[in-house]
């Protein structure tokens, strides 16, 4: 016998309501982790924070100290990573968007490979730099760390550059080319100017990604307990110091690790939120 209509409707409505309740619950579940993680990091970090974090170097067990050498090392290696990765990524993204129209298969292959690289495990990129650079040179160094980080920046910048340039209206290219301007000048002086906010966002997102990156630095830059101005030697970085200190049995080291976690989280969040709002603002400006 067929179900009576009112009961069927009730059943369908109940299922509908159930799905909505579960969907909302899933969202709250996801958000609760965010709140928990941020609260723990910010609370413990704020308690451990102080001026000594920025002025003293990492201590041996049982002594007082800060993270100055690790912060310096992180900054240097991140800048190196951006300095190598960003120009390379912008150039490759430009090629994909502007200069590969006659080789669609080649272009799609590179886009495909770049997308894979975007989510490839970062520890593997560290192993790659270890085998091609550290092993050949014979010692760990900040340069190797910077190269490993640049490989993480590269796909991010390639993708954003490619996508932003494709959004530039064709009219701009045609107008500039019809004036007889060579293509490289059209690209550099017209297209880059139009796409600058998007490209800059990509670079900032790349920087945000490498700020907290640990795995590729473990066996490229290694670590260094002391202040080090020599980029060709083992270099400390905040994430690696957090790893070492958090895994240790000493309370003073744990506290420093929380301070480092606080600094890294704040920098990453500011960079990614800043990059997104910056892009959003520019989009609205150019539309209105």
């Amino acid at each position: 016998m067929q179900q009576s209509a009112p009961r069927l409707i009730l059943k369908r409505r109940a299922r509908n309501l159930g799905s909505k309740v579960l969907g909302t619950a899933a969202t709250l579940f996801g958000l609760s982790w965010l709140v928990w993680i941020l609260a723990v990091t910010l609370f413990n970090g704020a308690r451990a924070l102080g001026l000594h974090i920025f002025t003293d170097i990492t201590p041996p067990p049982g002594a007082a100290g800060g993270l100055a050498n690790a912060l310096f090392g992180s900054a240097v290696m991140s800048l190196l990573g951006i300095a190598i990765g960003a120009p390379l990524g912008i150039a490759a993204g430009t090629y994909l968007s502007e200069f590969a129209e006659r080789r669609p298969i080649w272009r799609e292959t590179i886009r495909f490979v770049n997308d894979i690289l975007l989510s490839a495990p970062s520890i593997v990129l560290g192993l790659f730099v270890y085998t091609i650079y550290v092993r050949q040179v014979g010692h760990f160094s900040g340069i190797a760390g910077g190269i490993a980080l640049s490989l993480i920046v590269l796909p991010v910048v390639v993708r954003t550059t490619d996508e932003t340039l494709r959004l530039v209206p064709n009219m701009m290219r045609e107008a500039a080319l019809s004036l007889g301007i060579p293509r490289w000048k059209v690209t550099v002086q017209v297209l880059y100017r139009a796409a600058a906010p998007g490209i800059l966002t990509g670079v900032l997102l790349g920087l945000a990604r490498i700020t907290g990156e640990t795995a590729p630095l473990l066996f490229t830059a290694l670590n260094n307990q002391f202040w080090n101005n020599n980029i060709d030697g083992p270099t400390a970085s905040v994430p690696v110091v957090i790893f070492q200190f958090a895994m240790s049995p000493y309370d003073a080291w744990h506290s420093l690790a929380w301070a480092g976690a606080f600094v890294v989280t704040m920098v990453v969040l500011l960079l990614s939120v800043g990059a997104r709002t910056f892009l959003l603002k520019n989009r609205i400006d150019s539309n209105g």
Partner: peptide, 22 residues
Amino acid sequence: IAAAIELLAGIPSIIYGMWGLF
């Protein structure tokens, strides 16, 4: 809400590790 969920992706994995451990 979408932005908040995406923040989860922005948190570095070392922070997940430390929060996880402690």
